[in-house]
């Protein structure tokens, strides 16, 4: 039995398509944290992550009339999230290339990464090591090429199948397998001391 037919989120989206805005609010409420965190893990910038997440929901809102439940709702919304994040990444790259002559010379391994403050972190000694480790893990993720990073995030955090990830990233399943494999290998090398 196709999962999409029993998917309650698909039913909510179809209700929204028929004019029930309350159904959209339910979807928004259910997915906002997940989408924000997906975007945040991809870009490592909280403010940008929330902008990207809002863009994702805007696209969902505007696409109501064209929505056709061909897959699970979560597969569909994450496909939109992938597109939004990759588009933003390309814009940032373009901006970086045009401004590169004015940028200061890199003085450290993570100088090109945006600054991140974890407002939930308590600066106690026993938390310091854990916080630093989280920072190292986030840095290691940011150092992955964007396609590997995207595939790893979709697999590890959201547990999508390779088939779903292939659909979301518009690549073959074989490519997804390779991206995840290589992403894990790079993370293993970077985080050798932490494992």
């Amino acid at each position: 039995m196709p999962r999409k037919r029993t998917d309650p989120d698909v039913q909510l989206m179809l209700s929204f398509q028929e004019g029930d805005e309350h159904a959209f609010r339910k979807l928004f409420s259910k997915y906002q944290t997940r989408i924000i965190n997906f975007c945040f893990r991809f870009c490592s910038d909280r403010e940008l992550a929330e902008d990207l997440a809002q863009e994702v929901f805007l696209r969902v809102y505007r696409a109501a009339n064209q929505y056709r439940p061909k897959a699970r709702f979560s597969t569909w919304i994450y496909r939109i999230a992938v597109n939004v994040c990759l588009n933003e990444s390309r814009k940032l790259k373009k901006r970086y290339l045009t401004q590169s002559t004015d940028r200061p010379v890199a003085d450290g391994q993570n100088s090109r990464l945006p600054e991140y403050r974890d407002e939930n972190q308590v600066s106690a000694d026993d938390m310091m090591a854990s916080g630093q480790r989280d920072e190292q893990i986030k840095d290691a993720l940011q150092n992955l090429p964007e396609q590997q990073r995207m595939a790893v995030l979709l697999r590890i955090y959201n547990e999508f199948s390779y088939n779903e990830i292939a659909s979301q990233m518009s690549v073959s399943q074989g490519k997804v397998k390779t991206l995840i494999f290589r992403g894990r290998q790079t993370l293993k090398q970077t985080l050798q001391g932490e494992i």
């Binding site: 924000i36 893990r41 909280r46 929330e50 480790r133 989280d134 590890i156 985080l191």
Partner: peptide, 26 residues
């Protein structure tokens, strides 16, 4: 074991909560 550890480390990073005006801004 290495790959399982990496997966667990990634999953153990604390997620962020939406800011208070995220929904309002949307």
């Amino acid at each position: 074991n290495s790959l399982k550890s990496i997966d667990n480390m990634l999953r153990n990073i604390k997620p962020i909560e939406p800011s208070f005006d995220f929904a309002r801004g949307f």
